[in-house]
């Protein structure tokens, strides 16, 4: 009798554990970024089958795109990638160039681009694509504030990503972060190339200083929200050959200590769109 009761108790406990696990400690697979500090903070890497947001000011669009492309390269190397863009984004910050894409070490053959006319159809297309489990990744690029991308929309995207196992990356250019159900939220800026030796022999008439090396893409990535852990800020360098992020040689120390507490909303003043 007592054995049966223990058994029942154990079953119930197991059920409660499962329910709780599903609700809160949802532990999907993770993919390491390659940057030790970021991976430690993210407890192993970027969560798959979730929504991640990358915010950038308007003039930092290329850096943010590069960061997204890096994440895409980490998340899926061979599976198809759907990149949903708005027409306006092309005009404002240039179309995604396949030559540049392959220069970053990614495979343009896997990429299907959708040019949506407005944010509404872009969001709907992204939601559709997220439901398709043949994809490795869906990128949704939206320019400016979009009232369509509210908490409800973000929840829908998260559920779709969880159901299909496809990861979603939101690239928000010139937008203010709003409450959302994203797993992580990043604010990305460009960082300097590492200083180094002149890339060209300095001619007598040339000042030597500007002719220093042009290195791999370097990002100043600030993790401002992390649902399951602390946040931080790192300088990351994208290694095109190995297709991973790494610590930049030029910035040996972290530029800012990672705060232990969860941050407030991102400071709005910083995200005012500037011309250029």
């Amino acid at each position: 009798m007592s054995g049966a009761r223990t058994n029942t108790l154990a079953t119930l406990r197991g059920r409660i554990e499962r329910i709780e696990a599903h609700g809160d400690a949802y532990a999907p697979n993770k993919v390491p970024l390659g940057h030790a500090g970021a991976d430690a903070t993210l407890r192993g890497g970027l969560a798959l089958a979730a929504v991640h947001e990358v915010f950038a000011e308007g003039h930092q669009s290329a850096a943010a795109t590069g960061f997204i492309a890096g994440l895409a390269g980490r998340i899926t190397a061979r599976r198809p990638l759907v990149w949903v863009r708005q027409d306006f984004s092309d005009i404002e910050s240039g179309a995604l160039s396949m030559s540049g894409f392959s220069e970053l070490g990614l495979d343009p053959r896997c990429l299907v681009t959708v040019r949506a006319a407005d944010a509404d159809s872009a969001l709907r297309t992204a939601a559709d694509a997220l439901a398709c489990d043949a994809l490795g990744l869906v990128v949704l690029e939206v320019w400016g504030e979009a009232r369509q991308l509210d908490l409800v929309a973000s929840r829908k995207l998260t559920l779709a990503a969880q159901a299909s196992g496809v990861t979603a990356l939101l690239l928000r250019l010139a937008a203010t972060p709003q409450p959302s159900t994203a797993e992580t939220r990043w604010i990305v800026r460009a960082a300097h190339s590492p200083p180094g030796t002149p890339s060209m022999p300095a001619a007598p008439s040339m000042p030597a200083a500007p002719w220093s090396t042009w290195g791999a893409p370097v990002f100043d990535a600030q993790l401002v929200r992390n649902r399951h852990g602390p946040v931080g800020r790192w300088i990351m360098e994208w290694k095109c050959d190995e297709c991973l992020f790494s610590e930049s040689a030029a910035y040996p120390q972290p530029v800012a200590a990672a705060p232990a507490h969860r941050p407030h909303q991102a400071r709005d003043g910083e995200l005012q769109r500037r011309a250029g």
């Binding site: 669009s61 795109t65 995604l96 160039s97 095109c240 050959d241």
Partner: peptide
């Protein structure tokens, strides 16, 4: 792409 070279072409290109 050329190994151990930084990207030679931009990621975003204006039409």
């Amino acid at each position: 792409r050329t190994e151990s070279e930084p990207p030679l072409r931009p990621l975003r290109l204006f039409e």
